[in-house]
Design a protein around this nucleic acid. Structure first.
Lengths: 202, 202
DNA sequence: GGTTTTATCATGCGAGTGCATGATAACCGA
DNA sequence: TCGGTTATCATGCACTCGCATGATAAAACC
């Protein structure tokens, strides 16, 4: 599926937008945020530039669309992996691991997320979109920590909110160093397990 | 100090390069990495574009120069604040705090660092320059942790290397969330103290 | 079947890009 | 005092950018 040419009307607008957003992702991943342009994205998406403009009124909106799409992508992945766990501590561990660049797809997502993290410092709309996911993750973490505490999996004296914040910061902070190869996937997992082990009820 | 015009020969090349690098920093901070151009930087530095080209052969080299400059800037700040502490634990705490966006100057440095972190994912030279500082900081952390352990300030059973990695990741990971206002400076410091407290020898 | 709507494309425009070049002063060593 | 080096600038070039416009064809509607 590469080239459409003059066959209108039965199109799924959401699918088109998704297609464009994914082309933006690939451009960001392969060439970097500074190389994102309407032309480059159109070429990557296999459409004319005019068609991209038909679905997206401005470049900023195109980037925002790509950002929102990747946020729901990550959100879906986290929700799916969390649902697959049995104990609160497993949810916690699996969720953090899901956020880290431990295989190709997660590295892909993290590279793009990193680019948006930087570009959102200067773009208010992107910053707002970026902020959306954070409280959800933090409260998921805190909730699982509390559940693990009542289940006797984690020490009762822990401050769930603070532990959640620390855990999330750790996950965010280890990304870049791992992406550049400073840690192996096994090393990162060992680091996480080391940290979680100290939170255990003895 | 804004405009030179036709007064050559007694110039300090390093000073000129520093001046250009700082202009790059301001452009990145105020308008974002994508708006960095020879023209914009020249205007910000108060020189003609040709003069910038005289000191910097290419745009990539200009960015690399700005990256190296900010790395030594941060390194100097960390070294200075570390030298001012008396116990290993104080060094550890003060060094981490120095890396966080807790006041205007540190926010300034962190915004720029974040931009380079993203752009270095796609530029190999920048990635190499970025990697340089990490081992130094990690080994400083590990060293101070070990010193604190022998001094009885931190629990003896801690894995100094792993704790150093976790601490550094925490510092890196809390930056963006703090920059967008999700944490107050006091909240971040409290988070760090909470984490350090659990490492204490009882 | 003719008209309107929807989707796609090619093209043009003014602005901005990185980089190269030639001119022009100010200083230095003779 | 004079040629040569050093530093600065203005300008030009080929290219890309975001965005606007007009043409065109297929589908939908009547």
């Amino acid at each position: 599926m590469r080239k459409w040419r003059g066959m209108p009307k039965i199109v799924d607008h959401d699918a088109r937008r998704r297609h464009i957003a994914e082309a933006v992702h690939r451009v960001i991943h392969d060439k970097g945020m500074e190389r994102v342009s309407l032309r480059e994205v159109a070429a990557e998406a296999g459409m004319s530039m005019g068609t991209v403009q038909y679905y997206v009124t401005t470049k900023d909106q195109m980037l925002l669309l790509a950002l929102e799409r990747i946020a729901v992508w990550i959100g879906d992945r986290v929700a799916a992996v969390a649902a697959r766990q049995s104990t609160p501590l497993d949810v916690l561990r699996a969720t953090v691991l899901e956020l880290l660049p431990l295989d190709e797809e997660r590295s892909y997502l993290n590279r793009i997320g990193l680019a948006f993290q930087a570009s959102s410092v200067v773009d208010d709309d992107q910053a707002a979109a970026m902020r959306l996911g954070v409280p959800a993750l933090l409260s998921l973490f805190a909730e699982q920590i509390r559940a693990a505490q009542t289940a006797g999996q984690l020490a009762a004296h822990l401050d769930a909110e603070k532990e959640a914040s620390i855990l999330y910061a750790f996950a965010q902070g280890i990304v870049n160093t791992t992406l550049v190869g400073h840690y192996t996937p096994e090393g990162v997992a060992a680091l996480l397990d080391y940290h979680l082990a100290r939170l255990h009820a003895e």
